[in-house]
């Protein structure tokens, strides 16, 4: 059977899925594109795993180190690109008032 940490992680997974469904259902279609790019940036959290892979191999883990390095690059593109492009998009959504009613 599964050991305790795995059960704890599964519990977290299930609860996070419920939170995700609750929270995301409230995002209006107006903001679905920023939602996708923003959630993409969040899935760049893999960078955390990539850092651990690239940086703790010592002398004997060449392939693991390089895979970790490549993963850092990809995940960082996700994080930086995702958050920046989302920010850029969201800055464009203005209410009627702020638009100069010439």
């Amino acid at each position: 059977m599964l050991e305790a940490p795995a059960i704890a992680a599964l519990t977290i997974l299930v609860l996070a899925l419920f939170v995700g469904v609750e929270v995301i259902s409230k995002v209006p279609p107006l903001l679905h594109t920023p939602l996708m790019s923003g959630s993409n940036a969040i899935s760049g959290i893999t960078v955390v795993g990539a850092i651990l892979m690239a940086a703790n191999q010592g002398e004997n883990g060449t392939l693991a180190t390089w895979f970790g390095f490549a993963a850092i690059v990809f995940a960082t593109i996700n994080v930086v690109g995702g958050f920046m492009v989302t920010n850029r998009m969201l800055a464009m959504f203005k209410p009627k008032k702020s638009k100069s009613e010439e």
Partner: peptide, 30 residues
């Protein structure tokens, strides 16, 4: 998101599990 979540289980890392499942749920709803 689901791939990140699975990677969280590989590394026993709760940050990946939580974020991955949030993104997984978001994509599934869309």
């Amino acid at each position: 998101g689901l791939a990140a979540c699975a990677t969280g289980f590989v590394l026993d890392n709760s940050a990946l599990v939580i974020s991955g499942s949030l993104v997984g749920a978001s994509g599934l709803i869309l």
